[in-house]
Amino acid sequence: MTESAPSPLLDLPGAVATDAGRTARHYGSPLGEQKKAMTTEAGALFDRSDRDIVTVTGAPRLEWLHSLTTQHLTSLKPHEGTQTLVLSPTGRVEHHMNVYDDGATTWLDTEPGRGEALLKYLELMKFRTEVDLADATGEWALFTYTFPGAAEEPAPVLQPVPVPKFAAKDLLKVPTAVYPGSELDRTEGWTRRTDALGVFTADLMVRREDAGAELLSGDAAPAGTWAWDALRIAANVPAFGIDTDEKTVPHEVAPWLAAAVHLDKGCYRGQETVAKVHHLGQPPRRLVQLHLDGTDEHPPAHGTPVSLGDKEVGTIGTAVQHYELGQIALATVKRSAAADPDARFDVAGQAASL
């Protein structure tokens, strides 16, 4: 994959770059950025231009992706988006992608550093299918706006997750999550409504050379990765490969089961595990949100063990300071530990609760 160039938003006053140097960790006030994103009329602009982007073109692109992934994509209309997963033969999550189709191209965006493996897998699965794949990371960039209180635009549509032993008619033959979108008026690109963060949220895809003028013309406050992580954790939105691992199955991650998995569609790799867990069993672990007591001013690092009594029951994914909630984290823990709402966990000496 082409490594994305440093974002134009890094030139803004107060910008502190992430370790990778491609986007900003914050712009001088990480807690203030969170609050502005969730409470002010102008909202916030999140720089997510480090995400990897793959494009798929060709008439059979949606049918082809439908056959490879967990989502029902054949009925996705132009200027609509969704989410989908690629699973291993044993049902473990290998890739998570946000999807958008503009009528000619299907856009897939995934976590930084994950695009190369995704593109390689898709290339191997082409066979004689008349689709073309491209790495668009160097040319295009993704940004996300919040608009607290806005309600005039079409909202995302989510189908309810059916109970085990459901009848086929209980789940429509459409994507389980549909995010409406449209072309941009002033420049090339598109916008896509999402259900992230708990307020009106919209993604914006633009050419990198157009990003500065297009993005900085509004009143939204720039916000960095610290603020994004805090708000997505509060909204129970996982990051693939950070809040998940090589053992993760879809049923362990409730937001993905609701938005990225269709439980009644044609065969795809790993489908047998999805069906078995849904109808016959329970996942061995759960992704949960933890509230830490803050006795250590530094949130625990990724991979820090989570203990219950004298037993290790899980690990921390992302942990960060939230402007209202204090220290919060997403963690993967054993199902039995997650079942007790009053459980008190230990995370590197800090007490934590669900």
Score class of each variant (00 low, 15 high):
P255C: 08
L215N: 09
Q271C: 12
F240A: 13
M205I: 09
L197S: 05
A211S: 11
E188R: 12
A168G: 12
T176S: 12
A202H: 03
T191W: 03
P299T: 01
P283H: 07
A213Y: 06
R207C: 00
A202S: 12
P299Q: 07
A211P: 11
G270H: 05
K169N: 12
A259T: 14
A213R: 12
P284Y: 02
A254E: 11
R186T: 14
P164F: 13
V249A: 08
R286C: 06
T201D: 07
T176F: 01
P250A: 02
S217H: 11
G198V: 10
D195P: 00
R232T: 15
L197G: 04
D195F: 03
G224A: 10
V206G: 11
L257G: 07
G198M: 09
A235V: 06
V288I: 15
A202D: 03
P255M: 01
L204W: 11
T225G: 02
V174Q: 13
D195C: 06
L290T: 05
L172Q: 14
E214G: 00
L171T: 14
N236I: 08
A230T: 07
H279T: 12
S217D: 09
T273M: 15
A230W: 09
G270P: 07
V163S: 12
D195A: 15
V178R: 13
P164M: 06
R269M: 14
L263A: 02
L257E: 07
A259N: 12
V249R: 05
G266C: 08
A220G: 08
D219V: 03
Q282C: 00
V206K: 02
V199G: 12
R232E: 05
D243L: 11
T191Y: 00
V178P: 04
D203R: 11
T225D: 13
L263T: 05
K276W: 10
I233W: 02
A227H: 04
P180T: 11
W228Y: 15
P250M: 06
P222A: 06
H291L: 09
P222Q: 04
P175M: 07
E252F: 04
L257N: 10
G224L: 03
F200L: 08
G224R: 01
T191N: 06
H278W: 12
L231H: 04
M205E: 00
A177G: 04
D170S: 14
P164R: 02
R286N: 04
H291F: 13
G294R: 09
L292N: 07
L290F: 08
V178K: 00
L292E: 10
H278T: 06
L287R: 06
E209M: 09
R285F: 05
